[in-house]
Design a protein around this nucleic acid. Structure first.
Lengths: 245, 245
DNA sequence: ATAAATCAGTGTATCGCATACAGAGTTTTA
DNA sequence: TAAAACTCTGTATGCGATACACTGATTTAT
């Protein structure tokens, strides 16, 4: 039996704003689902997902905590709403751009989206159920489809790209905020423990001296992401040539 | 300033068991870090990460909650320990196997690991700091290195593979436990909202009728993962041919 | 031996959080 | 003009992480 607090059905209603149309009785509502979502989003952008509590959101809006529950059945659903609200229009490929550019732009845009709203990376992954999330995902599907993938291939490759982009963005964000140790102290400890005999490659990759100039982990990671992407797209082209040729 | 509750340094000490060696005074300890970790791991395997609380772990061990803090500085660290403890020896490629088989086996093994301990997918991602996590990651690095990647390429591709495998496993696990709606009801609602004009591809991919026989989401997802992997490895081979040729 | 040092385990307390429930007041419709 | 429907409030519950002070055990230095 699934969790289903308030039902996935209810979540979809909220995301698409297609709930039952609210009878005209009773006092006029002072709050609204979009309003609450915006307030929560502002908190998350400014202070991270950890700062978003029902109490905090309500306080910022000048209402009591429980009033929120008139609009949103649970905090989990609020987070879904926040994610969808944070998602803008998907990148629109230029006229002359091929499918490959489309995919590359999508990855870049997704990377930027996570950078603009790092807290998304702390939220549980979920299917793109909201309209904006869906449109975002659809735009990737379209590029892949234009490229020639068919049926389940489109979904498979799309999920692959989404997962790897998100995953690498998460690591980059952790490194950037220093949540994982790359302090000299930690690095030294690791080099001592990850001995070259048991961990030859890893040992070789740990920096021997404190990073010289600056070394931006975000740039580094994005370059890595691009390499993986390029390899995947190359493989995809070969795959398609084989099928058509 | 990083979070660093107890310090990443302390985390590493715990994971590798290299803390200061404990003075011989005082009563002999009834608990131990591995013992606590094992108890927590058992709970997570049986009932999910949500069931793991300090109170619960202590109760299962027959001690009070606070006694755990004599061994482990925080719950976050306990989770790190659990993950490392859940990680077995990495897959060992056979004699005749090439680097490509090595990578494929690694992905398969990682998939299986997540299946055996689904709760890992609910835990925050983190760098492979513990000995077992490190060895697991190192084994992937070695295969890629044998394949001919050099320097930062190895790390980039490894992270790409780890991220995509983990991400797809997370989706598969969600689908399998029914946490995301693929009930007929939900599916119908989605088909109605994701109209073919705005979401042509996505609409086409949503099943029109209730999945016939059984339709195992895990099998489906793994097949998708394998496709992405194949494309990436194909691209990698081309990349290497270019460099050497 | 005996006191000082050191450590294990306990009990109690605090604080933050999600959310249930029971009104009180408001607006619309029968 | 009463009933219905609805918003917002206040209060309460329960859970979880973790701080702190204390008891008692064990070892070592005197």
């Amino acid at each position: 039996m699934p969790r289903d607090t308030g039902g996935t059905a209810r979540t979809i209603e909220l995301l698409w704003g297609v709930g039952s149309p609210r009878g005209a009785r009773g006092p006029r509502p002072g709050l609204s689902v979009p309003g609450i979502t915006r307030a929560a989003l502002a908190i998350a952008d400014a202070e991270g997902l950890g700062a978003v509590s029902m109490q905090r959101v309500a306080k910022d809006l000048g209402y009591t905590t429980m009033s929120l529950y008139n609009y949103i059945p649970s905090k989990d659903q609020l987070i879904e709403l926040m994610i969808d609200a944070a998602t803008p229009e998907p990148p629109a490929p230029e006229e002359g751009d091929g499918w490959r550019e489309g995919v590359e732009q999508w990855v870049r845009a997704t990377w930027d989206l996570y950078r603009a709203h790092k807290w998304i990376l702390k939220a549980p992954v979920n299917a793109p159920l909201g309209p904006n999330q869906m449109a975002w995902f659809e735009s990737l599907l379209q590029s892949l489809s234009r490229g020639g993938l068919v049926g389940g291939e489109v979904m498979a490759v799309a999920q692959h790209l989404l997962a790897s982009t998100r995953g690498q963005a998460a690591i980059a964000a952790d490194l950037a905020t220093g949540e994982t140790g790359l302090s000299t102290e930690t690095n030294d400890a690791l080099r001592r423990l990850a001995t070259p005999d048991r961990f030859p490659i890893l040992h070789g990759l740990l920096p021997t001296d404190p990073p010289p100039g600056g070394f931006d982990p975000e740039e580094e990671m994005f370059a890595g992401l691009q390499l993986g992407l390029r390899l995947l797209l190359d493989g995809m082209e070969r795959h398609l040539q084989r099928k058509s040729g």
